[in-house]
Every structure is written in structure tokens, then in C-alpha cells.
Design a binder for these strands. Sequence first.
DNA 1: CCGTCACTTTCACCCAATGGAAGTCCTTCC
DNA 2: GGAAGGACTTCCATTGGGTGAAAGTGACGG
Lengths: 261, 261
Amino acid sequence: MAVNSDVPRRSTAGRALSLLGAFDATHPRLKLTELARRTDLPLPTVHRLAAELVSWGALERDATGHYSIGLRLWEAATLAPVAGRLREIALPFMQDLYETTRENVHLAVHDGFDALYVEKLSGHRSVPVVSRIGARLPMHSTGVGKALLARADAAFVRSYAERPLPRFTRYTITERARLLRELRATAERGYALTNEEMTLGSCSVAVAIPSDSHAPAGALGIVVRSVRTDLHRLVPDLRAAAEAIGRKLDEAVDGTQPGRA
Amino acid sequence: MAVNSDVPRRSTAGRALSLLGAFDATHPRLKLTELARRTDLPLPTVHRLAAELVSWGALERDATGHYSIGLRLWEAATLAPVAGRLREIALPFMQDLYETTRENVHLAVHDGFDALYVEKLSGHRSVPVVSRIGARLPMHSTGVGKALLARADAAFVRSYAERPLPRFTRYTITERARLLRELRATAERGYALTNEEMTLGSCSVAVAIPSDSHAPAGALGIVVRSVRTDLHRLVPDLRAAAEAIGRKLDEAVDGTQPGRA
DNA sequence: CCGTCACTTTCACCCAATGGAAGTCCTTCC
DNA sequence: GGAAGGACTTCCATTGGGTGAAAGTGACGG
């Protein structure tokens, strides 16, 4: 009876990964039925696979039957280069920035069409922001995003700007030409600015982390209340931090690899 | 012949997970052959599975052929309760502690026989410590570990103390009876202390995060240079932070579900 | 008391995963 | 230069583990 609907049937490993992929920021806990629906897999299959993931520690199941990402998977993920090397190196510098500003300090990397937030520091005094570690935000409406975009290659920027640019506030840049102009200005002055483009009441400065190696491109940013008008005063510290991180990263690369013999 | 060596043959999903499990803090990057050796799987099998993991983003492969944990897996892992809810809630309080002390601030949870470090703040002025986010350290030689152990149930403590207690410095508590006495004292005074028990030159204070729910047990600790003799002066702030975190956690548990419509 | 819903277990079928073997492409060493 | 070794990749016949429809369980609730 021609079961082969349309999908060329994911492999078993692929199905197991689908289960992990079913979780997202708005669905960090899922019941068995929800998992089956979101992965589009038969219920018994999900049941069996989920049980295996739980037994390894990739998923957890609580008393109410809800699944969530497991501790062991989280532990394994701390070994990812982005979390380990980059975060480890950047954190003390981010801490310094936090101390002098008491504002949100962000570290993001370029991934696909998004800025992926790798680290975020914020205290009780900081302005609330939408970002979250592990969150993806568009590049045209965030400080770190613009900083990353401003040093991406022309072909990428073109394909980025060709897609529709979602609007978040009335200040979000949604016109292709204006974005390109803005990026040129960003590249010239060496740092990115946003003004209530993602969230009303917040503005930000950001700089790209320099890197001569092909290391994953990162950017460092600070988000403050838009009543603060001294954004530019933060630039020297921000840039110094980014440069120090870049330097340490490059050193680390040389040490980490088998060596350039 | 008789290929069935001893292991009852892991399932396909289990094998894929083995690959992830092959990475650890001292081996965050592995070559194909190393992966095969560490997982004890045939090379072609590893090759095929690894390729699938890479295509999903659970692993990455660099130009030199080395595999490491992938960005998408890291991203999924940020949805783990321990990283998401607990970390998110605790961070601002940890930040406050850092501001007042400028020392290492640790957040760890109880897992198996270890204290698993979930978050760690440290600046350039902080004393260097062995901990790392995602690291596991023994419970008898760390501040957070003792704090967790002191409120674990008696049966667990007994089985913990029955195992040999590894020594790290000449001050590490390695005698069963002394550990039990120490834990009683810790429980009575309401906070844990260590004095060069993990690393010479460092001492620490820690308190358990109170929680009426069955939530994963956590502890908050500060590690300072052992020349500082005012450890006790940190206790009020530390305890206040732990209590605030505990309160927020309990609130969050009630509100976590589907959402406020 | 019975229908509904969410989950769990079973089991005969069959195809996808398997892994030995062979092929490719390096580097190293004589 | 070329042979030997090592690391990775591809191939493909075999087969046992994964599959998922169907039946079973059990917890509501009307």
C-alpha cells in the first residue's frame, strides 16, 4: 500500500535527531504526542526512540510525562567550540565591560542569516532585552548582527538584503538600500549602532571581533536604555575588549591545532 | 568468529549517541579513527553515522578532518532546564555577587556523585580555578559539592562516603568519618566552607539553593584566594542570593507550563 | 458505566544499517 | 622516485534491528 508518502524516509539516526530538533524556545517541554506530531513520526516510533534518548541522557522525562533536553546532552554541548573556546576566552572581558557599564553585554556569532547569541551578561539594573543564550535574532535589527554583516562578504550581504527584512519597531531598517548604506557607514566607522530598531527604548553599540584566522566570526555588543546618549563613549572599551578576545583566539588556535609544523 | 564480544550490541540511536559521548573536556576534537577507537565501533559505521550527525549539525568537521560538537546541538542544549530556567534565573543574582566580590561565582547542580558546574563567572582579578562550565568535580572537595551533599539524604551520603575519596591537596578530606562530621557541621551552620581542599591557595563558601519543589538541587558558591580571611562576611549576601533564586525557581515552576494565554 | 484520550506493548515483516573488503589519497622514509 | 604505511572513503551482499499497525492499559469525566 505505497507507504512511501513523499519524504525519502529519514534514517534512524536522523529520526533520533529530529526528536531533539522538535524542541525550541517556545516548546522546551513536549509530551509524547506533541513530539510525534512535531516530528511527523508514528507514535510508537517516537516512544521507542525517546526512551533510548532518555536512557542515554539526551532527553529527560519528568513525572508528568513531559520530555525536555537532558543533562548529558547539555554537558556534551559545553564542548562545542563556540561554547568552550570562544565563550571561555570572551567571558572575563565581557565581565569587565559589564562592571564598567552594568548593561547587557552580548556575544554573538554569525550563523546562516542570523546572529546566534552565544553569551549574554545582564544584571538587575540592565534594560530587559529579547535576547537569550542560544537565541537567533536577525542581523539587520541588532547591534551584533550589523557588526557581523558589515564585515561579511558582498555576496552574502546581497543575498541577505534580497530577502524581506522583518520589522520589529517603526525604526527597524527594512529597505534594502538603506541597510546597504548603513552597513557601509558601519564598516567605515568600525562599529555598529542601533536605535530602537529591535525594541523600543533600547539602543546598542557593537563591534566585530577581529580574526585573521578563518575562525567563526563573532561580535561583541552592549545594549542600553535609549535615554543614554553617550553610546559612543563605550566604543573604546568595547573595541579594546574585542581586540583582546581576537588576539587570544588566534593564539589559542595556534596552540589547539596539531600545529602548523 | 563469535562477533558478539560482550556488549549486547547498541541500537543505531545508541551508537549515534556514543559518538557524542566520545567527546570530553580533554578530547573536544576527534579524528575519524579516534572516534572509532573511543566508541569501539567499526570505522565505516562511524564514518556513516558521523556524516549524518554533521549534516544535521550535531557535529562539525573542520578542514583538517577533525570532528567537534556542532552548533545546532549546542543550540538545542540551551533549551535544557538546567541551562535555560535555572541559569537564566540565577545569572543576575550571580552577577550581583560578582560585582560585590570580584571573585569566582559558581552555580552547580547535584548529578550522580558529582557537582556539575552549570555556570561560572570570573573576571581577570579572580583567582584561577579548575572549574569550567560543564565540568564535574567531586562533592567532598568543593564548596558547592559540600553544600549539596549536606542536604542530600542519608542513604546517598553513606554510599558517597563508602567510595574512596580522591585527594587533591594535603587538605582534602579523605576520611569517611571526618567527611560525615564536616557535613553535619555544614548542615548546622547552613553553609559550606572549604580551605585549600581542591586547590592550594583557594578557599570557598557555598550555600544550597532552597527549593520546596522537587526541582534539581542546586548550590551557589564563591571561590577566593585563601589569604582572604573574611569568608564568613560573604555568607549573608550569598544566602540572600540563593534564597531569591529559590523563590523565583518555585514561582517559575508554576508559571512554566503552556503559558499565560 | 462506557467513551475518550494518551500512552504503552506486541510482533511479523522487511528494508535500512551493517562492516568486511577493496579503493583512493595522502605522508613518510629509504 | 617509489614503496610502504596510514587515514579516510566507497561498495555492496547479508541480515537482524527497526518498524508501525493493531491491540492493550489505564486514567479521567460525563
